[in-house]
Structure formats: C-alpha cells, structure tokens
C-alpha cells in the first residue's frame, strides 16, 4: 500500500519524465500524457495486481491494461519503467532509431508491458474486450483495464466495442475515458460534440462512474467502487475529468500542446514546476 503522498510524488516524477522525453526526442504528445498521468500512476502503483519483473504476454492471473490512445506513450512508458517493467534509463531512447520505445506503443521490439500496438485510434477497447473474454474462458478472475482518449470516441469502432461489451455483459472490464475536452484541432465541443457521455454509456448498458482524474484520493476511491462493480453483469466505464497538459501551467487547457514538444526554455520552465522525486532518467 502506497500513501497518497507517495503516489503524488510518483506522478510528479512521471510528469518530469514526460517533459524530458518529449524534449529529448523533439517530438511527441505531452498534453494528453500529462492528462492521464495520475490515472496511470493509481493503476500501476496501487490498484493493479501485476508482475512487472516477469512480464509475459498472456498475463494469466494478472490484471491487464490496454492503452488505446497510443500517442500518450510518454506517460505509459514512464509508468512502465518506474514500476519495474524495464530500466528507467531506457526512457532516454524514446522515439530514437532502434529503440524499444516507439513513438506509439508497439510489441515488435519486445518492450515489456506492452501487449498490443496502439496509435491508430479507436482499437484498444476491442482488444481489451477480447482479452477480458480470454480471462473468462481461462477462469481467470482478474480485471482488464483500458484507457481511451475523449477525441478518440469519434471513432466508430469504439461504439461497436461499447455495444458488444454492454450487450454481451463483459463485466470483467473497467474502461476509462480521459475526458480533457481537447483534441488536435481544438475543443471537443467545436470539433465534434460528444454530448452527454454518461447517458450514452449508460444507454449502452455500462455502469458509469465519474471522477476528478487528478485527485489521487478520489481516483483510488472511484477505482475501488469500479472494482466492486465488476462481475455484476455490466462493464464499467469511468469518465476521468482531466485537464490537458495538467501540471505545467502554460500547457494546461491548450490543445496546441497535444502534439508539440517544448523547446529548451519551455522545458526548463516546465521542469521548475515539477518536483524531482525519484531521480531523473
């Protein structure tokens, strides 16, 4: 059991990693990565039952996580490394040639912790459902987690998957939406309004929860409720109310930071706002 303070300290370090990785690569997606950081830290450092030291693809007897919005790979890689899947120093290779840390997560290079490629949006939830069904067939009572972006919900395949899991009672899955209201071209409300997401998922047969996606106590509480709701005939959806660019004041709520790397000066300014708690890579 980690304390809230310990988890917050990890989040701060992960945010530093994100800024430094994207700066180092001079490319990547800081906005959404900063937005999902607290949720991933809660999952990997407190909630999930997993075995980072001995990664195997099948993950039988373990909770599994699928990142559908693969462009937030900096957050994913940092959390994987910091929780022990691979050496932290490898974060320095992000987006470099011959690295296991591809721009978007991939299995081809054998990076421990990644079970499927993601990047082309809208596909991760379907994969998570398949993995959840495999767990049922294997009488494996662990849970499958999946995270999607909010802009990603524009994709039709998401709603095929949502229809399937709700209609066919795939109740060992906890999905979450990083609801930061921003996508590449601007505000969700301007690009393509999602309307009442809670009502939509509820209508599709999901048990829907909502929480502040940055308040660690509330995140843990919500995940605990979500876990209790599994096995009751409905898949669980958590709407994470988040802020794009969270933790770096000049990046917050600005969609231009979806896929832009900070320059040297901006990096310095960003890092000054984020405490180094576990040592930089």
């Amino acid at each position: 059991m980690s304390t809230i303070k310990e988890l917050k300290d990890i989040s701060s370090q992960v945010r530093r990693d994100i800024i430094r990785m994207v700066h180092n690569a001079a490319s990547g997606h800081p906005g959404g990565s900063l937005s999902i950081t607290d949720y991933l830290v809660a999952l990997y450092f407190e909630v999930m039952d997993h075995n980072p030291e001995k990664f195997d693809m099948d993950g039988i007897g373990q909770d599994l996580f699928f990142l559908s919005n693969g462009h937030t790979s900096p957050a994913f890689y940092s959390v994987l490394a910091r929780s022990g899947y691979f050496p932290v120093k490898e974060l320095a290779t992000f987006r470099k040639i011959h690295s296991r840390l591809q721009g978007h997560p991939a299995t081809m290079e054998g990076l421990p912790g990644v079970r499927v490629a993601s990047g082309s949006l809208g596909q991760g939830l379907s994969v998570a459902i398949g993995a959840a069904l495999a767990k049922k067939l294997n009488n494996d009572d662990k849970t499958v987690y999946c995270l999607t972006g909010d802009g990603e919900l524009d994709e039709g395949q998401i709603w095929e998957a949502v229809t399937y899991a709700g209609g066919k009672n795939v109740d060992n899955i906890i999905a979450a939406v990083d609801y930061n209201h921003k996508q590449i071209d601007g505000d969700i409300e301007d690009v393509l309004p999602l309307l009442d997401l809670n009502a939509k998922f509820t209508a599709f047969g999901w048990h829907v929860l909502e929480t502040d996606g940055h308040d660690m106590e509330k995140l843990l509480e919500t995940l605990s409720i979500a876990k209790k709701e599994t096995g009751k005939g409905k898949p669980v959806m958590i709407l994470l109310h988040t802020v794009m660019g969270k933790g770096v004041d000049f990046m917050e709520n600005d969609h231009k930071w979806h896929g832009t790397a900070p320059n040297d000066e901006q990096t310095e300014k960003a890092l000054a706002q984020l405490l180094e708690t576990l040592g930089d890579f």
Binding site: G59, V116, S126, V127, Q157, E160
Partner: peptide, 25 residues
C-alpha cells in the same frame, strides 16, 4: 462458449480476436 457472435461489426471483431490471443486463445 468458444464462439463469439459479434454482430455486424468487423472492426471490433478483429480487435477482439487480437485480444483473445492474450491469454493463449
């Protein structure tokens, strides 16, 4: 129990199939 009717949603079916391999199917 080993047959999954996905309805007319081929994209979801391919994704589910990929997921089912994770766990040895």
């Amino acid at each position: 129990e080993r047959f999954f009717q996905t309805g007319i949603s081929e994209a979801n079916m391919i994704g589910m199939a990929a997921g089912l391999t994770i766990g040895g199917k």
